[in-house]
Amino acid sequence: MTFLSKAITAFGGLLLAHACYSAREHTALQSLRAATAASLTSTPTVATSLPVDIILETIISTFVILLGLVLGTRPLRPIEWRVWAGKIEREGEEGFTDNSGAVDKDFMGNPFSAFESRPNFVDIRKQRREFAEWVQKGGSEATRYYAGSTR
């Protein structure tokens, strides 16, 4: 997604630079022609406007860059508390990533996590059972799990 938006923006920028150069060359040519015509015939020539293809290229390239920039914006977050908290509850970290898939730096997780992990409500028997299984297995994947959760 981020690559797509950057590619579109770069392509539009190339088009816009080309249009800018074309317009510059066109006006330079026009002023040169006007100067020579004035010195030869002394009839004032009206300055013509840009050719249609340069105008079209400018507008289309602007639109292409605009599309790329809009695609590159970061995803929004719901502002109502109940919608926002529900999204955290359902999707967790996956709901708060930027375009490249990394979790936002200011994502702070469940707002009720302190409330839900009160010591009075810890299931100590379940934890003891899990610990006993882990000791029996001595497995490597359990080690990783506990190392991750206790830190």
Binding site: L66, L69, V70, T73, R74, L76, R77, P78, I79, E80, W81, R82, W84, D106
Partner: peptide, 22 residues
């Protein structure tokens, strides 16, 4: 129905960045 300030700031900043660039 309370409003989350951080989300509001995040959204406004996203829109503002886009608008000043464009």
């Amino acid at each position: 129905s309370p409003i989350v300030q951080e989300s509001l700031i995040h959204n406004s900043r996203t829109l503002y960045n886009l608008q000043s660039l464009t």
